[in-house]
Design a protein around this nucleic acid. Structure first.
Lengths: 220, 220
DNA sequence: GATAGTTTCATACAACTGTTTGAATTGCAA
DNA sequence: TTGCAATTCAAACAGTTGTATGAAACTATC
């Protein structure tokens, strides 16, 4: 019962700070200062710093996965159990990209926190992270249904590359902007999503499905 | 002068530990224990922990970039100043992938350290990292020469996606193995390189070169 | 072999970490 | 109001961190 105000303030402050500065740099004292609560409040309400991080991660993890699965299910139901591969990939990378890119002021703290979590991987998060594999398997299943001719290996590689492009673009968005001298517009989120989905779709549909190596590259 | 033995031992131990466990978890005491030297030796030989990390990163950074550029230059000279895009991409992602994947025992500590550095980005490294942009620009230049019809934007996105796939595959290699139940063979490095190069090539060559969006994706 | 310069070593230091403690304060039910 | 539990708070705790110190052990030159 009670107001829960302190708990909430700690969660919000922690998420914001972790998202901005990473787990390594943020101390409990930083968090309680930002939240305007007493130092001991963290241990009182959460037990330990690790449990605070874990709660943060679990909450956001569930929310993100739910959003992705919602998009996926809607697409599959509409297609009678089989959604186009582009739409599946859209459901996979869209939510995260939309949350982490776009104009500065409308970027979701939650999404930025999740990116941090996927990068820095502190112990409390690493322990939980295995569940995500089950989540990804659902997408692999949908992709298999969309591309019944492709081998499992190709499906998993396509899934891997789709996540790679989405996450890397978010993580290195600053560098890409600088490298391209602003020519790559990271604020146009839907364009970014379209590019990632497009390339991932090509990766999954091009070449001959049967053979192991998807293409030959001149070595010399 | 002198033996330099201590210096070298510290560098080697630090690189190994950082590569394995990340910057956050490894203390100076871990390093000197692994190197069998006295605690004060680090500050004596390097000045500070940050300077040790910086020296490690600079050294490896130069070496990796030199290897990539060597492959690139050889290819361009052989092609009369214009190398095929596949070969350029091969030079870009090949060295890193070869160093970080493959059978456990032959993975290069240096490459794994660089991956850590590209992920955890501690302050001393962040300061140096800007130079890499100049290095990437050389690859962007080569890619532009290989694909004169492509817009700069597409070139940079292709470059970004190529690095994305390479780095993400290395970073999440364990998860990909687990997700695919071993079906994706991360030890077959040349297959991985071929896949990354193949997809990146498609990203750079498919669709119509002129328009901004490389392809349309069904939004519904 | 004495001397000067370099390198090692054990030890101490100050700063910071997450956590604990026990007393004060608050909120609410009887 | 009284009583009791939940919550807040300042202070201290024990552990770890990177760094500094000054004496000891080397190494090479004369």
């Amino acid at each position: 019962m009670a107001s829960d105000h302190t708990r909430t303030a700690i969660l919000a402050a922690a998420e914001r700070l972790y998202a901005d500065r990473g787990f390594g740099d943020v101390t409990l004292r930083d968090i309680v200062a930002e939240a305007n609560v007493n130092l001991a409040a963290v241990n009182y309400h959460f037990g330990s710093k690790d449990e605070l991080i874990a709660e943060l991660f679990v909450t956001r993890s569930i929310a993100t996965n739910r959003e992705r699965l919602r998009e996926l299910k809607a697409a599959e139901e509409q297609g009678g159990g089989r959604a186009p591969i582009e739409v599946i990939l859209h459901a996979l990378v869209g939510p995260t990209l939309r949350g982490c890119l776009g104009p500065e002021n409308q970027r979701s703290t939650a999404a930025r926190f999740m990116i941090r979590a996927s990068i820095e991987s502190v112990p409390p998060i690493r322990r939980i992270k295995n569940r995500e594999i089950d989540h990804l398997r659902k997408f692999a299943g949908a992709m298999r249904r969309a591309l019944p001719d492709r081998s499992d290996v190709d499906i998993y590689w396509g899934l891997n590359f789709a996540l790679a492009m989405a996450h890397h673009t978010i993580r290195e968005s600053e560098r890409l902007t600088k490298l391209s001298e602003g020519k790559c517009d990271l604020d146009d989120v839907e364009d970014v999503v379209a590019r990632v989905v497009s390339v991932a779709t090509m990766a999954l549909t091009a070449g001959r499905p049967a053979t192991k190596a998807p293409s030959r590259v001149a070595a010399r």
